[in-house]
Amino acid sequence: MVVALCAFTALTCWPAIGGVEIDLAGLVRNWSNGADKIAQLLRPDLTFLPRTVAPMLETLAMAVAGAAFAAIISIPLTLAAARPSNPNPLTRQLVRFCINVNRAVPDLVFATVLVAMVGVGTLPGFLTLFLFDLGVVVKLVSEAVDSADHPYLEAGTAAGGTQAQINRATVLPQSWPLFANQWLYSLELNVRISAILGIVGAGGIGRLLDERRGFFAYDDVSVIILEILVVVVVIEVISNALRRRLR
């Protein structure tokens, strides 16, 4: 086991086959070049702050809209992907497979391809977040629904209900806290992700960050990073408060 791990690690360090060339000297060289950039990062230029407000609002709008639309679509898909709410193995596995494929695409890869498809702006960002959230919510909630107890299923079946009736009247209200939890979680993730989507042209604060980085304006970059940090923390606090209330 240990030998295998060491061998694998060694292979990852072999540049000829694509492995990473470990070049500490280069690192040191670059690092001395980068020292002044670090120094600049540590002196944020707060006068830049007003210019970040509009892109930041755009970022938040993408995050909220993406999470909201994904939340709506996630309901039927989750019910189709969970065993208690969809006893048909064929459709269940099909939905699960699609969700797994969706989840295997990294967020920024979605954004890159979507930007190329529908053009620069908030639309590809919104679509990226929507698809990403769909993957997160459907996967996690359907697994939670799978592992929960559903005694009322038998009662619904015994009363002659169709699966759709049972799902709508019992499984869905019963799983509501699981959904709410993941919807809030996807909103939190969205704020982080939407902050970087602009790097590939999908709108929001990331575009500004990429632009200032391109101009080597690291004092502005650090303002943006600080702002993202604050917004992420604030959204997390709000989301945690909501989560407690929803229990």
Partner: peptide
């Protein structure tokens, strides 16, 4: 709290865009 990609991005611009600095 800071998205991983932003941390990586800043580090990369400081240390150079190579796979090793990526790691």
């Amino acid at each position: 709290a800071v998205p991983e990609v932003i941390i990586a991005l800043v580090l990369l611009t400081v240390t150079g865009l190579t796979p090793f600095t990526g790691a």
